[in-house]
Design a protein around this nucleic acid. Structure first.
Lengths: 367, 367
DNA sequence: CAACTTCCTGAGAACGCTTGCACGCTAGGC
DNA sequence: GCCTAGCGTGCAAGCGTTCTCAGGAAGTTG
């Protein structure tokens, strides 16, 4: 780790955001006016009817070997790709899966999407992303349900939906899979956040901590589902131990504001000796704030996170590890199944394991 | 920063990946067998023809106020949503933008997508994601070009494409925008990676370093475009200064392997006194490896990164900052323009600024 | 009042595909 | 040799939109 801190001197390397439309040394892009070849073109070239082309390309068995060969050759020659729009019009299948995500820039969401996409691309499904960051967007999404006719299924990523919202999705007419969120009676893939919160807190208790704070991000729409669950686990562990209840601290959005709010924690008359943060990212913000306040971790304050973000190892951050990529993979498997087989189990649940990893950021108090 | 490192004791919190299909306390999901209302339904309810409904819903002015009102009411009553499949069949517009991305789990890509999506959702466009992690997938993508009839435009994210691949995309028949990558004669949004690499290296030179290593990830398909550019900048600065050429060190994929390879650097007989890493994420891996090897940063080795990843500030990592969210926003604006207006500038270029941020991880050698 | 324009509307032909149905041809059973 | 079965194929009817075109009502002008 690097100690101390140099003054941030900022140098602009290039003229700010200049717009260059420089000389083209390369032939310009051809004008996209050529029509794509259709099945009719393939049919003509192969000397068969459109139906035969369609049947061949979908791998139906009722096509003679000779016809199949000719069709495949023609399709290759013309670089034919079926129009999903046209076929979905008939079949009612769009071939894509919609994902409702709170953000795209978080490590967790990125990993889930990564897992999801590898799974889905294997099944020939495309990923359609609806990021819903703000409350207004969220409201609009649930009002219009734009995914309605554009996807075969919807995946809801770690949202803490209201009952009305869930009900609205029920009426969507397509499978809805909840990821990182347990919902009774609906397909869901999740971890046991309560147990995770409990384990992390018990660890702090075992070390001898009695004043423990729970740190979570404040959001316009209340707690995240996971955050709420982890908090529940934390409080449960404290209640079991019979110690005083945790200080629950909400941290406003925005990095700077978060740092300040976190700093406050240390100026309390009777400050906590340990902090359990909702996520590793938040825990890292806390570490930054603490360093600015010249408070030693773990000597003066123990810190635990949740997630096992890649930098947690480097930071020596005690944490509860989950594997978001698997979360995505499993969810992807579930959704392909639900799409393919309408009488599959309508509400499969998959719980993925958590793993507690103690590191250097937590020690006994007053050591 | 946390020093020392506790043994990693791992506790499984719940039975591994058990599959629960527990009792449903909530009414099960309704079977999706209801048909979605069509324009014909709306037309009937409003007492007008389908054409009028279509015109109204697309906001055409040639509809009488009364008819418009009735149609809007009927559409609301029935919760009507147009079928993009059907309309795209006739208009030739799909209403979605395809994104070719090397991964989804990196911070950089996540931020770009975030910016992109906010911009696109404003224009009523959906985001269709094609992640192409491996060479095989990449080859398949360029062979089949599955985006061909399913998107109105393609965004290529920080890929270092071959000339054939670029040429293939030219023939795609839709606008292709290159993000984080300058391509002559094609629309692109990028930063000046060469200047960035040069500035970071000059900074190290100014501090007095003479043996400088450039660290980059090794990929099956050679250097990333950005990585190559940054390396060029680094070598340029060294050449200007007339010092010995940099040690270029490629780090294999996979976290563990990377750590080991990085560790090697320190066992050289004449080790570098400073390292410039392709990305902050790589620089952080380096810091981890160095800590394991008990090598002090910055006292024994100075480290500079690139990107200004959120944890760079905490880590006190000197870096060259770029704003990937803006990259996405600007690219999104560009692409909506290209889709809407076919005779817009066919190859607009937008260069975004970089900002050098010296922090605690770089100091003069042998201090 | 006729002729012309303007405004709004609806009929109907696409768009590119899937699929039910019917047709012809070969093969097998009596 | 006739009937039936089965296989491979093509015809044509959609799927839910958009869009051209024609036509009717209303308004404007000479």
């Amino acid at each position: 780790m690097v100690s101390g801190s140099a003054p941030t001197c900022e140098i602009t390397l290039s003229r700010s955001c200049r717009s260059v439309s420089g000389p083209c040394y390369v032939p310009a892009m051809p004008i996209p006016d050529q029509r794509y070849p259709t099945m009719a073109d393939v049919a003509e070239r192969a000397g068969v009817s459109v139906s035969t082309v369609s049947r061949t390309l979908r791998g139906m068995s009722t096509v003679s070997p000779e016809a199949r060969l000719r069709v495949e050759q023609a399709a290759r020659d013309l670089e034919f790709v079926v129009s999903r729009q046209a076929s979905s019009l008939v079949t009612g299948r769009t071939g894509n899966v919609a994902v409702l995500a709170p953000t795209l820039s978080s490590w967790f969401v990125g990993c889930v999407l990564q897992g999801l996409s590898t799974q889905l691309s294997g099944a020939g499904l495309d990923l359609l992303i609806y990021p819903v960051a703000e409350l207004a967007e969220r409201k609009a999404f649930f009002e219009r349900l734009p995914a309605r006719r554009n996807a075969d299924a919807l995946m809801v990523l770690s949202f803490d939906l209201t009952e009305e919202e869930t009900a609205r999705l029920d009426g969507l007419g397509m499978p809805v899979v909840y990821v990182s969120r347990k919902v009774e009676g609906r397909p869901s893939v999740y971890v046991d956040d309560v147990a995770g919160g409990r384990t992390a807190t018990r660890h702090l208790l075992t070390l001898g901590h009695r004043r423990i704070a729970y740190l979570c991000g404040r959001r316009s729409d209340g707690f995240t589902y996971s955050s709420r669950q982890r908090r529940t686990g934390c409080l449960q562990a404290l209640a079991e131990a019979g110690t005083e209840p945790a200080l629950v601290r909400e941290v406003p959005h925005g990095r700077r504001a978060a740092l300040e709010a976190i700093g406050d924690l240390t100026t309390l008359s009777d400050p906590p000796t340990a902090v359990f943060a909702e996520t590793d990212e938040l825990a890292l913000d806390l570490l930054t704030a603490l360093r600015e306040a010249r408070i030693q971790v773990p000597d003066q304050l123990s810190v635990s996170g949740f997630d096992d973000h890649p930098v947690a190892e480097w930071a020596g951050l005690t944490t509860v590890a989950q594997d978001p990529v698997s979360l995505g993979t499993v969810a992807g498997g579930l959704v392909t199944e639900l799409i393919a087989d309408p009488d599959a189990d309508p509400a499969p649940h998959r719980e993925l394991p958590l793993r507690f990893i103690p590191r250097a950021s937590t020690v006994s108090p007053g050591r």
